[in-house]
Amino acid sequence: MFAVCATPKAIEGLTWAMCYLTSGKHLDFYWSFVTVLLLLAITAPVAMALGFGGAMAARSQIAPLRWIGKAYTAMVRGVPDIVYFLFFVIALDQGIEYLNHLRVCEDLSQPVFRGLEFHVCAEAKVPPATASPFMFQAYSFGLAVITFAIVFGAFVANVIYGAMQAVPHAQLETAEAYGMSHGQVFRRVLVPQMWTYALPGLTNLWMILIKATPLLFLLSVKDIVYYARELGGTKTQAYDYPHADWRLYYFLGLLVFYLLMTKLSEIVLTRISNRLSKGQATAAGEAMRKAAI
């Protein structure tokens, strides 16, 4: 990056530190923070949507839909995350390639599964072998988003399902007595009140999601924890910038990052919580009403 950094082993002190901290690998490290934030920004709304859908399905009057909703939450919540990330992702990847195989390959005579090996023709590879490294990263990232969303969606579904049950039944009955249809009751009475019960649970899930991102490395997306371990490890003379075991400092840096994220989330979530409690028939809403008098 800087001209002085061309001979890393000849420089010392602050110049060394500056060159070290701006090496290509460190720049990758800084970018990985963006990767993690991007993952959170995409996964959270998708998981929310899946969870909302799951909760609606689990409450549905139609039996098969209800079974799907219940089965989704029960199955995903019952399987350890790490198994999910190892097994499901390979299955998802192979599933995508298999469908592509049926679509584009000319020679379908060969079996796809041969012993331990999985074979599709070269055109069916996703992404194709000729794609740029960036495409491979983007594809892994996409798989990661889907997997995270499915796993966290199941937890969200259960939280929202519970929150929907917590809305006083008398309110729904009253709404129906006013002549509202099922859909109207759902939109106008159930959902607005449900959030205030769901928020504490959703807050927890958000925090867990922030801290679950190291699982990204299982999907060969290099996240901040991978880089902290890789950069912090002892570096011998084979590297441009040899140093002792500095993992402690890198992980302290991550600690600060995670604490900042937690603090920031807390501030935002408290505001949302206050806003949602306004005018609700809950203890928090009641306290706000009294304070306002």
Binding site: S23, K25, Y239, D240
Partner: peptide, 9 residues
């Protein structure tokens, strides 16, 4: 020295 990620990444 078999394989490693150098400082350029």
């Amino acid at each position: 020295p078999f394989n490693f990620i150098d400082d350029k990444g």
